[in-house]
Structure formats: C-alpha cells, structure tokens
Design a protein around this nucleic acid. Structure first.
Length: 280
DNA sequence: CATCTTGTTACGTT
DNA sequence: AAACGTAACAAGAT
C-alpha cells in the first residue's frame, strides 16, 4: 500500500506516542523483517527509552528515541503503523509492538516485504543519512531530475519514476498520475525528454506528491474527484478528461494505466496546448 | 485453482 | 563500471 503520502499518514499515527517512554516490547524476531536488526540490542536498549522524534524520507521512516536510539521502518508493500490500546494483543502479522502507558505502537505487515533497522548512534545512522529527500520536499529540484534522467537515458520514463534514488516516495499509482498530468506516454525513453518536458515532469512530481500529502497524508482520504487515481483500479476506468477507456499494460514490471489521447507516444508533439494544470 | 498486487533487491546480461 | 530486465520474496484478494 504505502507510497509517500500513506507513509506520512502512518508516521503521524505513531507520533501520538512522542515524548513518552517505551515500557515493553513484543516482536517476531525470526521474520525476515528483522534480518538487518541486532535483535538482542533492540530488546535490551529500547525499553526505558523515550520516543522523541520522527521523520520520513520518501517511503522510509525514522523514529528517534532517547539514549541515541534509532528505529528505521520501511513498510514495503503491505506494512502499516497503528496506535492501539495499551493492552493490545499482537496478532499473526503484528511483528513489532512498542508498549507505552497509554497506547501500543504497532507495526503490522502481512506480506513481509517491509524492513526494520535499529542503531545506537550519536548522529544519524549511516543507513539513513544517505537517503535522498522526498519528492515533495524543497530539496527535490529540477537539476536533480535532469541529471537523474540523463543517467537513465534508455529507461522508459515510467520505470525511472519508480526508482527511489531519483524520485523518493513515488510509487506505482503516483507515477501514473504524474505522467497523465504531464501528458507523457509511460514508454517514452528518458533521453527523449527535452528541457521543457523535464520542467513539466519535475513540477508534476512535486504537485502530485504535495497534493497526495494534503489528502491521503492528512487523514487517509482519497484525492479529490478528477484524479486518475479514481479510475486506475478498475478495468472500466476512463480518462477523467476525455472519458475514453484507459490503456492498461505492464510497464517496468508494474500495472500501468494511461490515456491514449492525453499521453501520446511521439517525442515531437506540440507543447502549445496547456498542460493539465493539476489544480483540483 | 489461477492470477493479481500501491515495493524492493539480487542477479545475470548488456 | 553502470545501466537494465527479470525473478524472487509472501500472503491475501479476486
């Protein structure tokens, strides 16, 4: 489930426990989620520490605790964070539970594609410090997009949008939403984007990211009507502008949906017409 | 029962 | 060396 906006929503759920100590914890240590975690240290150090801060970069989460402790969480395909009652009894898919006096902070992941990390360090852990800033952030600038696309000239633009090193936080549905608004065919090679197209793409990445944060990231509500989002899940989906059936095909190994009228394949196309502004 | 999936990574090839 | 395509990971939904 989680892309940047869902990740942000889950981060805020755990923020209900900020400033409060961890009294106890329960975990399923043998699951592959813990393959990068020094489990004995986690069990020894975390109880008694206080949750002090949290941060997201793309789809990655970092929770800081007192005693220089850091917990990193990647939610994978099916992970989520919950705040439950303090007497919460973990189920089969609840792999990590942090108990506080007034709540239990739960990490749940049925499909086990997530990943946990843990470190004790006076500065940011090295596995966090090297992560790029979110596509919604100010640090995500046009020059970075341009050079990233230049390094992936032969890749279809849809595949490039899914690479977290270049577009941190963008996932499958957001990539389709961005390409639809930028009026770009998902199979366009990165090399064929000219300077104007790079700017258009960059702006739509930022706009879709930030708009998704305002809706999904705020209260998990769907984006407003008019988004491709509402059409892409069902086979009868239609372009919100042209009402024509959407094209549906696997690109870069993922289901990809686009409008055969908005998103034309040739690189030489008129840019006179207004690019869909994305307001609303 | 077969096929699908809002994600990443290991691995082999170009 | 870097970029690229594909299989693999696991389990639930359709």
């Amino acid at each position: 489930m989680p892309e940047l906006a869902e990740v942000e929503f889950f981060r805020k759920r755990w923020d209900s426990g900020l400033g409060r100590p961890i009294l106890a914890l329960k975990l399923h240590a043998r699951k592959r989620l813990f393959r990068k975690v020094p489990v004995p240290e986690l069990l020894r150090l975390l109880p008694g520490s206080r949750l002090s801060r949290s941060e997201a970069r793309g789809k990655q989460l970092l929770f800081r605790f007192s005693k220089d402790l850091w917990l990193g969480i990647h939610l994978g395909m099916s992970g989520q964070l919950l705040a439950e009652r303090p007497d919460f009894n973990p189920g089969k898919h609840d792999h990590l539970v942090l108990y506080q006096r007034d709540r239990a902070l739960v990490f749940r992941d049925p499909r086990l594609f997530g990943l946990l990390r843990f470190a004790q360090s006076g500065s940011l852990p090295e596995w966090w410090a090297k992560l790029p800033l979110s596509a919604s952030s100010k640090g995500f600038n046009r020059a970075a997009v341009r050079s990233f696309l230049q390094r992936h000239q032969r890749l279809p633009i849809k595949a490039a949008l899914l690479l977290q090193a270049g577009f941190p936080g963008i996932g499958n549905w957001m990539a389709d939403e961005i390409l639809w608004r930028a009026r770009m065919h998902p199979l366009m090679r990165c090399a064929t984007l000219d300077a104007i197209a790079v700017t258009v793409l960059w702006k739509q990445v930022r706009w879709v990211s930030r708009a998704a944060l305002r809706h999904i990231g705020h209260d998990f509500s769907d984006p407003p009507p008019g988004w491709l989002f509402h059409q892409r899940w069902h086979s009868a989906g239609r372009c919100p502008i042209h009402a024509v059936p959407l094209t549906r095909r696997t690109v870069a190994g993922r289901t990809t949906v686009w409008c055969p009228i908005c998103q034309i394949q040739q690189s030489r196309r008129s840019r006179k017409g207004p690019v869909f502004p994305g307001k609303g």
